Measured scan of single mutants.
Amino acid sequence: RVIAMPSVRKYAREKGVDIRLVQGTGKNGRVLKEDIDAWLA
């Protein structure tokens, strides 16, 4: 299970990103909004 705040999950869904593919850089591997942006870049 991916650790991410609900707002980040929603952001990823809106961008069409599968959050399971994104490498989290936050505490304990948490996926941050910046990680979604970096994955899209």
Rank of each mutant, 00 (worst) to 15 (best):
I3K: 11
G16N: 14
R20Q: 12
R20W: 13
A4Q: 04
R13S: 07
D18W: 06
A41M: 15
L21C: 09
W39R: 15
D37E: 09
R30S: 11
N28R: 14
T25F: 04
W39E: 06
T25I: 03
D37L: 05
D18I: 06
R13D: 06
D18Y: 06
A12R: 01
R13P: 00
D18H: 05
V31E: 00
V31S: 01
D37M: 05
I19L: 12
V31P: 03
Q23S: 11
K15E: 11
D35N: 08
V8S: 03
A38F: 14
K10Y: 07
A4P: 04
K27I: 14
P6M: 12
K10Q: 05
D18V: 07
M5D: 09
L40Q: 06
E34D: 15
G26I: 03
G24F: 02
D35T: 01
I19V: 09
V2M: 03
Y11H: 06
V8T: 06
Y11C: 03
G24W: 02
M5K: 14
A41R: 11
V31H: 01
I3N: 13
R13F: 15
Q23I: 14
K10H: 07
V8G: 01
R13G: 06
Y11K: 02
Y11D: 01
I19N: 01
G24A: 09
L21F: 14
E34F: 14
G24N: 04
L21R: 06
P6G: 10
K10M: 07
A38R: 13
R1P: 15
D37P: 01
K27P: 11
L32Y: 12
K10V: 12
R1M: 13
E34N: 15
A38M: 12
A41L: 08
R30M: 13
D18G: 03
G16P: 00
V17R: 00
K27L: 13
W39K: 08
G26H: 04
A38N: 14
A4R: 02
S7V: 07
V31R: 03
R9I: 08
R20T: 07
G24Y: 03
K10E: 06
G26N: 02
R1I: 15
A4K: 02
V31F: 02
A38S: 14
A41D: 14
G26L: 02
Q23D: 09
G29W: 06
I3R: 12
R1S: 08
G16C: 07
Y11P: 01
I36K: 00
E14W: 14
A41P: 05
D18S: 07
I3W: 04
E34M: 15
I36Y: 00
V2K: 06
W39M: 11
N28V: 06
D18M: 07
K27Q: 14
S7P: 07
R9H: 07
G29M: 10
K27S: 09
V2T: 07
V17F: 03
L32M: 11
L40S: 06
V17Q: 02
V2S: 04
V31G: 00
S7T: 10
K10R: 12
A12M: 01
G29Q: 08
A12F: 01
A12P: 01
A12L: 02
I19W: 08
R20I: 10
M5N: 13
A12Y: 01
E34H: 12
A41W: 15
A41S: 15
R20P: 03
R20F: 14
Q23E: 11
G26E: 04
W39A: 04
V22Y: 01
E14H: 08
L21A: 11
V8L: 04
N28S: 15
I3E: 08
R20E: 11
P6F: 05
A4T: 05
P6W: 11
P6Y: 07
K10I: 10
D18F: 06
E14L: 14
N28T: 06
N28A: 13
T25W: 04
I36S: 00
E14Q: 13
I19Q: 01
R13N: 15
P6D: 06
G26S: 09
V22R: 01
D37R: 07
A38L: 14
W39P: 01
W39T: 09
G24R: 03
I36M: 01
A41G: 13
L21N: 11
P6N: 05
A38D: 14
D35S: 02
Q23F: 12
E14K: 12
S7R: 08
G26R: 02
M5E: 12
E14D: 12
M5W: 11
D35L: 01
S7M: 09
A38H: 15
R20N: 07
L40W: 08
K27F: 08
E34Q: 14
A12T: 02
I3S: 10
I3L: 08
R30D: 07
R9K: 10
A38W: 13
G29K: 10
V22G: 02
R20H: 14
V22T: 05
I19T: 04
G16V: 05
A41Q: 15
I36Q: 00
D37H: 06
G16Q: 05
N28Y: 10
V17T: 02
V17L: 07
D35E: 01
W39V: 12
R9M: 04
V22S: 01
I19R: 01
L40E: 07
R1Y: 05
G16Y: 07
L40H: 09
D37V: 08
G24K: 04
K33G: 05
K15G: 04
I36N: 00
D18Q: 11
R13Y: 13
G26W: 03
E34I: 13
G29A: 06
K33E: 09
V8W: 02
V8I: 07
V2N: 07
N28I: 08
K33T: 11
V22F: 04
G16K: 10
L21Y: 12
I3G: 14
V22I: 08
R30L: 10
K15A: 07
K10F: 11
I19Y: 04
A41V: 15
R30P: 02
V17W: 00
V8D: 05
K33Y: 06
Q23M: 11
V2G: 05
V31A: 03
L40G: 09
L40F: 08
Y11Q: 03
G24T: 03
T25N: 14
V17I: 08
E34A: 13
A4E: 04
R13V: 08
V31T: 06
K10D: 04
G26A: 08
G26D: 04
P6A: 15
G24S: 10
T25Q: 07
T25E: 04
V2P: 15
I36V: 10
G29Y: 10
L32T: 07
E34S: 10
K27C: 09
E34P: 12
E14S: 08
R1W: 03
I3V: 14
G24V: 03
Y11E: 02
I36G: 00
V2W: 03
K15D: 00
Y11S: 02
V22A: 04
L21H: 12
V22L: 06
I19S: 02
N28M: 12
A4M: 05
V2D: 10
M5A: 14
A12W: 02
Q23A: 10
A4L: 05
Q23G: 13
D35I: 00
G16S: 08
I36D: 00
G26Y: 02
G24E: 02
L21M: 04
G16E: 08
A12V: 01
K33N: 06
R20L: 14
R13E: 05
L21W: 10
K27Y: 14
R13K: 15
V8R: 01
I3Q: 09
G16F: 10
D35F: 00
D35W: 00
M5Q: 12
E14R: 10
V2F: 05
T25C: 04
L32E: 08
G29V: 02
E34W: 13
L32W: 05
K33F: 15
V8Q: 02
Q23R: 10
E34V: 13
S7W: 15
V8N: 03
A4I: 08
A4V: 05
V22D: 00
A38G: 07
V31W: 01
W39H: 09
V17Y: 01
R1T: 15
K27V: 07
L40K: 06
